[in-house]
Nucleic acid binder design. Structure first.
Lengths: 348, 348
DNA sequence: ATGAAAGCGCTAACAG
DNA sequence: CTGTTAGCGCTTTCAT
């Protein structure tokens, strides 16, 4: 056990060659005799030599690390996203520096700035990030891809979930199986996903049930708000035949409100959510929902980012879209159980 | 928008001082007049100067980054752990480099080695990590704390979940509320948590129902294995009065097997799990379980690590334990709904 | 209080 | 094919 860590000099001395040769061998640059290679490798192994990444970064200007700036979210979305990014990053020999758990613009700005110099590229998911934010906080030379963002600028390519199409497909399905009136529970007003899902609801209603009035109740993505919305819906006369919540947690809250009122789901009222969180499968009745592959989202983001880092011109449009699938379970009153891919467009 | 990023030299020139003064001001070292301070600050702001962390690391030897090496797990455990670590790290001005999604010893070894030089300390959670692994792959000068590990060595302090006490408490509770025979569904044989939980089951049975035979069915933490175990249990004569699964997913699988057989839970048979995953609350009946605060685990790990990094002698024992709580819901047949802290010992 | 200068460990010309 | 050397951007003595 050496007390101090070995440097390239130590290896050079041990192998009786110059540091340049050590560098060449260890970086596989060629132009070195087999003898020298052997000597260097053995010396390096003997000394447990590991190149200092700081020194290397300093001169090469590359860190082989990509950063992920995420909001203070938790649960499946977070873990799957990180997992997708990490898996893809590791496959390309990149490390992942995460900065999650920040709330508020200033926090997000600090997180982005702190990444400066530590990463070769950035994946950003934050509701606080808009054009102005980026121009202010993002170093001009740092490639970045946005997730789930309304910013539409070739300088900052984005990958979005096709919330609109997903919502349209689900509402269409609800209408198709015979529920004439479909109510919608919204997400938080500032949320981009929520807005797109509402847009999809409106579009589907306009297309398939133009005579039906829109029935929109405010929610904020929490189970609690879903419960409140459910009670509100229950008080309506006539009661809607189906309810589409902008996310699964609200659908679950809504389900409890319906059960509490003694209603049968989907007999008395149909219900559907969005996200396909793990719970969706386990509530009774199992919740019909719209599934998004978050792992794919992460992977696509990383792929797009590495493309950017390698200087590939982004010939493609600034914004890409990740398709989602309608998952029909028991809560929507259709007696089928298949998964229909409604939007085969894929990012990456 | 400058094309090249500003260096300390640019700031020095802009402020008409030496680079040494810039460094002093920006690091708050004092010994600088207010005038100089002002000039430097303004110049830095004007140039959008951000110190290069690689250069800084090179000379200071510190990266202000800590690494987390985690297995390819997903779901709540993962996200809460990262969240706990990140929250605590950020509060101390540290960044978080994660390396998740590796499976297999070689993979884990590569992950640990790759952290070398990039981080000031390491948090490791992996079933492949034992004493030999650490001695082989962990640089001698890198502080590290283990999570959920059987390694008991002052050189590598560990924080473990008190699975044993948690399991004992749950089995004790099951026995207390009148279920004379309690069966246990194990986790994967190599899993440390699983082993501890089984140990707790055995201890509780020995203590409170020494005359009852042990009833242990093999599982592997998956819902599917829980389902199979459930069917196996159903076939026993006499049928056990209560079943304690080593984790919630298996308990859920088990629940489905019972429901499928037309049994009433907890009327005909009681059920309990371990982990308190989100689903536990949403299945019908709601699952009684043992809760662990994963966020606390992450936070404790970080705190312990920073202590190590600051050279604090680890006066405390090598292994610390994080208590867990029995959460009584509907599935275990007790008509109460409180949370009892059974093990107040806390890490950190 | 300030500046000049010496490296940190490494890569990348440039010589030989 | 190999060695010498000049920095990368920064912190830190050591003079002044």
């Amino acid at each position: 056990m050496t007390t101090k860590k070995a440097t390239i000099k130590d290896v050079a001395r041990e192998a009786k060659v110059s540091i340049a040769s050590v560098s060449r061998v260890l970086n596989g640059l060629g132009g070195v005799t087999a003898d020298t290679q052997e000597a260097v490798r053995q010396a390096a192994a003997r000394l447990h030599y590991v190149p200092d990444s700081a020194a290397r970064s300093l001169i090469t200007g590359r860190t082989h690390t990509i950063g992920a700036v995420l909001p203070d979210l938790y649960g499946e979305f977070f873990s799957e996203l990180i997992r997708g990014i990490d898996l893809a990053a590791r496959a390309r020999g990149l490390h992942l520096l995460v900065s999650s758990s920040h709330d508020g613009v200033e926090d997000a700005a600090a997180a982005v700035r702190a990444m400066r110099g530590r990463v070769d590229g950035l994946i950003v998911l934050s509701q606080f990030v808009d054009q102005a934010f980026l121009e202010k906080n993002l170093p001009a030379d740092l490639p970045a891809v946005l997730l789930d963002s309304p910013v539409d600028n070739p300088r900052y390519p984005a990958i979005n979930i096709d919330n609109d199409a997903g919502a349209q497909a689900m509402v269409g399905h609800l209408l198709d199986v015979g529920h004439a009136s479909v109510a919608f529970i919204t997400g938080p007003s500032g949320n981009f996903d929520a807005q797109q899902r509402e847009k999809g609801y409106r579009a589907a209603m306009a297309a398939h049930a133009p005579h039906m009035p829109l029935n929109i109740i405010a929610g904020d993505f929490t189970e609690e708000s879903g419960y409140r919305a459910g009670r509100e819906l229950l008080a309506q006369r006539p009661r809607p035949q189906a309810v589409f919540a902008a996310n699964d947690m609200m659908a679950v809250g809504c389900l409890y409100a319906f059960k509490e009122a003694g209603l049968d789901v989907p007999g008395d009222i149909a219900l559907a959510g969005f996200d396909d969180i793990l719970i969706a499968r386990y509530v009774t009745p199992a919740l019909s929902t719209v599934r998004v592959s978050i792992t794919d989202l992460g992977k696509s983001a990383l792929l797009l980012l590495t493309g950017l880092m390698e200087g590939k011109a982004h010939t493609s449009p600034a914004t890409r879209t990740l398709g989602c699938d309608v998952v029909v379970r028991d809560s929507c009153g259709a007696h089928q159980t298949d998964v229909a891919t409604i939007n085969p467009s894929r990012a990456g």
